[in-house]
Write a protein that binds this DNA or RNA. Structure first.
Lengths: 338, 338
DNA sequence: TAGTTAAATGAAAACGTTTTACATGTTAAT
DNA sequence: ATTAACATGTAAAACGTTTTCATTTAACTA
């Protein structure tokens, strides 16, 4: 069953390939009569137009590639789902580029667009995986692209995220308001921009409250549950133990909560724990996790929207766009022990 | 900066396009001298071969499409990650088809292969989204495909999953061994094969123990946390309340646990709760969830392996392949109250 | 050296569409 | 009846590769 092509259909229907093509892409410019005739042949033959052929001609693949560190992370999964839905209704398919944090992989997936396999990039990491000529205008060297959830150090790329410094600041303020003075931070890897921004917010909140910054209270984690546990272990060893721990991800927060509870402390009576992200499971652990809500659906949605706009050829103002976060106060934070 | 093609490179290097092509795909059959010459031109010009052009000629897109109900479900996310990794090292990119359980979407994504945009399908749902002629041999009408984690009613398709009936049976036996007699089941949607298989395992375990089947104890959920809560609500209303609840997903189990706890029951003293899947968070709720472990990595890995084999043209024996499950006994199950 | 074989290269067709430029047929206006 | 204008349709080029087959070049053999 050698798949038949547009020419075969044309022959069967006694029209030219051009007409068949128009039946799909511009039916209004073919007469009703021939339209029906061709349609009938198409239906009867089960003809499936080959999109590769079309892509070659139109120079559009109909794909976009989403580059994310780890699909297993609920934050990313939520964003990806939103993207996928909207891309689908816009007629695009999404290629999943799970990098596991490897730059080499970022490169690889970015290459999909330079190789014509994708028309645009959704980038959820903090560096531009394209070789660019620094003497030239950056924006002109980039394909349609939007950076989500992270920060790229350039005001020429369009970016959407939550205001991490404001959000972290708000979170820490919550702890300060509860009377905490020894507030630890469990950060993410230091090559991740969002983590550094959250750290800045943490510092800023302490500064506003005239609480001296104690670098011993800042521990670097890996954003996952295990590293949360590990960091909690380190924090509990401190001579002056923190009364509150602000974690830069819910997973880490859940990890520290588990660990401190296992050590016999109670949350929040002895130690308050705060997360960041508001993944589904944040409400389901005990006690429910106080955290900063990120609007995943909106983030993903805006990213893809802005990308689609670019793909349509519309101009999209570069720069950052902030989406609103929300402090979710639940059971894992409480007044500082006296 | 009109992207330059293989002909331009050929011209620049004073060779034919064929030679340039060979530099990439069969460097061993071009002499060292010309190889270097061409390579130099390629490097200097920053030439990126257009994969669409190549695809058209070779009739291979280099993509595979993974059709899943919901990427937000940790089970699916885990599987997809495994797939993505192996696909990547094999030179394939994966198109993500998140269907939200909609058949129409399954169709759409399956169409990607009939349209040449993907070379094979990984199908994580329980019906074949291709129109097939029932009078003809099924296997010959299907593209390279493997069905994962579900069950399709045909012995002509290659399938990989956990033995759901055995697994569910094992789970219920655990509860029976603890002395439970009133064991409820919170199932998934009844058009999902895996759920029906688990139900069968549940029945079989009861039968073996001579416990009469009480259909009032079987409630249909939606696999997610909310539906778990809802079902728990119904179960607690029963005149003869169950002492154990077996949920067909961890999410639902977490939901019922939350709910029964909120109603003042304690788990497992009053009611034992059992899940299925063993997602990460199963260990992190309180009490930790007893559940059936599914080897996500292995499932995804085997799926993609079998698909790659087919794509290489090798024959793959159709039929089901079972991967081992494992009962994880944790804190949410205990002896039946006396 | 001439003859033979093997290795390296090139010319051109093919993959399946879209689209431009043009041709034909039809209608409306004079 | 003649022409202009328009509606439909067509032929053919183009998109960027790969690959078959023929040809040239290089490398041996006798």
């Amino acid at each position: 069953m050698a798949a038949l092509g547009i020419k075969d259909i044309a022959a069967l229907a006694n029209v030219s390939p051009a007409t068949v093509s128009r039946v799909f892409s511009a039916p209004e410019m073919v007469s009703k009569k021939t339209l029906e005739k061709v349609q009938k042949v198409i239906d009867e033959s089960g003809y499936r137009p080959n999109r590769i052929g079309a892509s070659l001609r139109t120079r559009k693949s109909g794909n976009i590639v989403a580059i994310i560190p780890d699909i297993t992370n609920p934050v990313n999964a939520g964003i990806i789902r939103a993207i996928e839905q909207k891309a689908h209704t816009a007629g695009y398919s999404v290629l999943l580029g799970d990098t596991q944090g490897l730059h080499e992989r970022e490169q690889h997936y970015a290459d999909l667009v330079t190789h014509g396999q994708a028309d645009g990039v959704l980038l959820f990491c903090s560096s531009i995986p394209f070789k660019t000529d620094p003497t030239l205008n950056l924006a002109q060297q980039l394909p349609p692209m939007v950076n989500g959830n992270e920060k790229i150090d350039s005001d020429e790329v369009v970016q959407v995220a939550v205001d991490n410094v404001a959000a972290a600041k708000r979170a820490v303020k919550h702890l300060i308001d509860l009377g905490h003075k020894y507030i630890a931070a469990v950060t993410g890897p230091d090559d991740i921009a969002s983590s550094n921004e959250r750290l800045e917010g943490y510092r800023s909140a302490l500064e506003d409250a005239n609480i001296p910054l104690d670098s011993g209270l800042c521990i670097q984690g890996e954003y996952d549950v295990e590293s949360g546990m590990k960091c909690a272990g380190q924090l509990l060893l401190l001579r002056q133990r923190p009364t509150a721990i602000f974690c830069f991800s819910d997973d880490m927060a859940i990890g520290v909560m588990k660990f401190v509870q296992k050590q016999g402390f109670s949350v929040p009576e002895d130690i308050s724990v705060m997360g960041f992200d508001d993944i589904n499971y944040a409400q389901l652990v005990s006690p429910a996790l106080t955290t900063v809500h990120q609007p995943l659906e909106e983030i993903g949605g805006l990213c893809i929207e802005l990308l689609l706009k670019q793909l349509k050829g519309e101009y999209v103002e570069p720069g950052r766009r902030f989406l609103p976060f929300e402090l979710k106060v639940r059971g894992s934070t409480g007044p500082a022990p006296t």
